[in-house]
Design a binder for these strands. Structure first.
Lengths: 206, 206, 206, 206
DNA sequence: CATGAATGAGTGTTCATTCAT
DNA sequence: TATGAATGAACACTCATTCAT
């Protein structure tokens, strides 16, 4: 019942109660705000707790580690993205699905661009965590389903295609976000270029 | 005449002497090695100095700040890339230039993939620095010249194209590096897909 | 009439009800178990409460302080020893009484050797507490009665003899316990040596 | 050359320089003073550093851990005792050697009784450390040599005799120290009783 | 110029204790 | 009375940076 492993990455208590869930959510959102307002420099547990309106002790009641807070935030964002993406699987056309996916991904990442960028950095720094990977695996799975559309070239099924394309999407939007771009439409158009261009070029041209 | 502000980000002294230049280089390379061997966790000035075979004091004689060391390393890598790229400008064909550029960029980033990845992270974290930007601007400039090739669609001149494409190149190679890929040929092929696909798709298709 | 000072070391309430008494006992035994299982490192009020099957709040309903729990445990152990010793007073022979005392003391301390050792440490660390001292005074009193046996040298009545001998008994058994010894007979024999040797040697030898 | 184990118990740098050695000694003595003045409650690294007239950072330059400071102090005391005991080995008579040993041990422990007592507690709490054990093993060795004296009963060689007797010595003096006794002579006499009594009684009496 | 011992603000984390429910 | 979430002071430890030698 009791895990003595100090490196356990799970919340110390499952947020079953109403109050707890609210506190957990408050802490996670506070972490997001701190990240946006003060960057990685100001991102420390005391600041997070204060912003969340709770004590450090409470923070540690729900998260065993500072990194666990970060992971929860990463996970939350991944889930948010998932929700905007979940129904794509039902679509017939690979082309249309991809367009929907891209639109959602761009919208998601452009909503809080600073946060998205810093979380990408943190996610890269953090040791891989199963809880988080479950989410990104689901995103990858959805994306792969899009690529399996009959109207797309068979080469889209190449094993690295999905990871390449997801990296491309992220990179373009991150870069745009860093440059302060906010025009969603223009960005979607460019990401479409990158994705469909990659797929077309990849296919043996006649 | 010279800014003495303690928050200046420039090296405290221009390495005029032979000895100094060697020391500076040693420190920068030591920083690279630490980053590769111990990651961002083990990346601290004492470790860097020790690895470089100098005292921390000496390190601070040449660099006003830890971040300045990192910036110098980023700059060094940019210059290394520059050297492999500098002669591309002379080429006639945009297509061929791009291919050369991609080959060089992939080779560069795949030579020390861990270092490249961590430096990308650090570069994103660091406040923008003129000295560093000079280099990346030069790289961007060369890349833009490639895009101006007469055999490429006019749309390649769109202002965001260059930054999009550079981001794409970096993203694909970083991702591949993180997954442990080492096949340069395959990677070059995929990056070509992404770049030429982007350009072609971007152009109004008949 | 009663001291309400928050630093009072007495239980907040006398456990009058059946329920209370059971809870108090559960908490004390839980403390013992934690101490045995996790040492002083893991010995904290939350762990104790959890092990006792009550909330921390309840723990603090019955004990004003963590140290109060420890003292209660020390006291309980002292009382346990007392019970095995109480009837010794009736014996005629000082020699026999001492042997009985030693046997009981060794048996007591060897029953839960880890607990005994850690409690010795805690007892040494704790500020002297009347409630606890009452018990150890009773033990000392019984022991002193043994020493007053007519068949023992008069020097046994020297004021420090009792405290010296009790310390000796404790020390030998603690040490043995730490070394993992479990042979009660052998230990009793050695403690007898120490005690009777001390007494004999203390007496002016002819 | 570099130990990455965080649980390494060795000083981070060998105190080779004059300055370092002085600092190390100052820190150790400060630890002793804090222990005497404020007990285990006030015994924390900041207090130790302040008392030593150095910064916490310096403390951690020489000791990897708070516990390492404690161990160094324990070791220092053990060495002090050793110095007062080292020449005993040369003596002929077991009886005389033992008397000398006891005199030294009592003097040692009575010089700073509070410190001695708290260090006994800490030593018991600390995980066994080779550096420290080397010293206590040497003390035990000397003591065992005393017991091998030809004028002592052969039973003194019983394996547990040494550890029993050392425990007895410590216990009596600790107890006396806690009671505020300062009469060295009286204490030596009583410890002699205990030790020689144990040995005599242990031997089969005619 | 080089050294590396010294600094001390800052950070993550724990845990005895309280108090609203 | 019981609960357990909340508190926050306290602590161990790190590391960028300085400065006397």
């Amino acid at each position: 019942m009791e895990s003595d492993a100090p490196n356990s990455l799970n919340p110390r208590k499952k947020p079953g109660q109403r109050r707890s869930a609210a506190t957990v959510a408050a802490i996670i959102e506070a972490a997001a705000r701190i990240l946006e307002a003060s960057g990685l420099e100001g991102y420390n547990t005391n600041a997070i707790a204060e912003r969340a309106g709770v004590s450090v002790g409470s923070l540690y009641q729900y998260f065993p580690t500072k990194d666990a807070v970060t992971r929860a935030l990463v996970e939350r964002e991944a889930i948010l993205l998932m929700e905007e993406i979940a129904d794509i699987a039902a679509l017939r056309s690979g082309r249309t699905s991809l367009e929907r996916f891209i639109k959602a991904a761009v919208a998601h990442q452009l909503r809080r661009p600073v946060l998205a960028r810093l979380l990408d950095i943190e996610e890269a720094r953090l040791p891989p965590d199963p809880e988080v990977e479950v989410q990104s695996d689901r995103v990858t799975e959805i994306f792969s389903q899009c690529l399996r559309g009959a109207d797309l070239p068979a080469t889209a099924l190449a094993p690295e295609a999905a990871s390449d394309l997801l990296a491309i999407i992220r990179a373009i939007v991150d870069t745009a976000g860093r440059h302060g771009e906010t025009d969603r439409g223009a960005l979607v158009r460019r990401v479409n270029c990158a994705v469909f261009g990659y797929l077309e070029w990849q296919a043996p041209r006649a």
